[in-house]
Amino acid sequence: MLRLVQEIWIYNPLEPSNLSNEKRITNHESQTPLEVKTMKKLSQTQSIPSKTIGVLALQGAFREHRHILERLGVGVREVRLPADLEGISGLIIPGGESTTMAKLMMDYQLKQPIRDFAAHGGAIWGTCAGAILLAKDIENQVDAHISTASDQPRLELMHTRVRRNAFGRQVDSFQASLEIVGMDQPFKAIFIRAPVFLEVGDAVQVLSRVGDQIVLAREGKLLASSFHPELTGDPRVHQYFLDMTLEP
């Protein structure tokens, strides 16, 4: 019983012990002292800090992303309608059910505004279902009954071809220690009915693999992970994304 409780505690993103990343935050501040200072000043007088990351909140694990971003000191806005995109400097598309999110994205006319956001240099990160929505291409699954596989609405932004549920059903979900390009220490990653990137375009940088399967990739200001950094409390991929939003 004790072990069970400890495990539950481990994954809780609110747990301060999971977010002992003060050093990285300090580094981040020293790189952009002016902007951070301005943000702090503003946040004392206004309710919205000048740097705000949007989290698509149509469905799924958006709250976990929110918690980690808030620990890193950035403002967060939940995005459900096109107007919510106004003024954000980055957008995270969370894990959840990609067919549900795709449907709500189309029903509430979010596709084009998100594409416009990317076209104007906005950074976007998709985790799991979010990575599927970012892809140009979704593999048409062998089972012909699955009509939603290839014609599923998506953002078609990133030059990737994804396979959904690439490792199998829920009983095949797993956790693994990942080597990620640019990170000294391995990253504990949780794969839940996870997709993989079967093919990537020339401009896509592969940042991590499981075996020979691509699970983390970047193209310009687009980032896609087939695992869930929002569930483990380790903020390094979130920090990486925040740094991306600051790039010109």
């Binding site: 694990a61 959840g96 059910e97 979900s173 949780i190 839940i192 569930l231």
Partner: peptide, 20 residues
Amino acid sequence: ENQVATLQIKTGFAEMFKGG
């Protein structure tokens, strides 16, 4: 490494149903 069916994987999967 590469564990399956941990409590974290199970509860993490459950998180994906939120708002749905």
